[in-house]
Amino acid sequence: MALSSGSSSSRDSREKITIQNVSKSYESTQALANVSFSVLEGEFCCVVGPSGCGKTTLLRAIAGLDDPDGGSILVGGDPVTGPGLNRGMVFQEYALFPWRTVRGNIRFGLDRPACDCPNCEARVRELIDLVGLKGFEDAYPKELSGGMKQRVGIARALAPDPEILLLDEPFGSVDARTRDRLHAELLDIWAQTGQTVVFVTHDIDEAVTLADRVVVMDADPGTVQSTFSIDLERPRERTSRDFVDHVAQIRDELGSPVDTSH
């Protein structure tokens, strides 16, 4: 407590996630080296970078699934010590429970004793509507397409009404057209719920389509190279001049050699 009070005084009161000097090594590679940045409440933050830059490690650390070797992660001012229902996670390969139906998967987080949910059935119905899966309530994951699976993944993560939604390259394995639709739907959901979102991707277009702010990471060791604010109206037109400029700027940043002066 005494240690964190010094840093919390410098913390913006709107900061929802504060990452301070986080490091993490796996055997011979340093996945994260002194990573620091923060995400404001209600902000849509995308983290982009080449594979091996530690973006997934960072997300897992925020989720409480991996412990960093050094540094600290604060969520709403409290240090992360493990997973919690205030942070929902959407996985790259969906990670749906194959033995549960769509309804059963979405309900999973509501059945925990820690979750206070007076009317779970209604909540599940509401979420199924929200992600557009009406009529598929009793389908098993094996019967669903990739895009539909990820809709279930999103609804399942939203069910306990987390303050923060963490997404790890969620649309990496769906086709381009479905991805566009899922982007629009995710932005709708975000607008409705006002959650703080951290979205990891290696696709710069995707990041500029979605984010308020893009954090660019560099690999080996994983560090934050720079951050970009994206002040564009939504929905964003990918062919617009501003959009293309932002993408080019980030691509330059990613392509440039590591420069510590940034």
């Binding site: 897992r60 989720a63 409480g64 699934l65 493990g82 997973p83 919690g84 229902l85 942070r87 929902g88 996670m89 996985f91 390969e93 990670a95 749906l96 429970f97 999973f108 987080g109 925990r112 820690a114 979750c115 399942r156 993560a157 069910a159 306990p160």
Partner: peptide
Amino acid sequence: VSSELTDAASTLGVE
């Protein structure tokens, strides 16, 4: 048992 599924369950409140 895949660690992805146990991870998912952890984030959904299985302690």
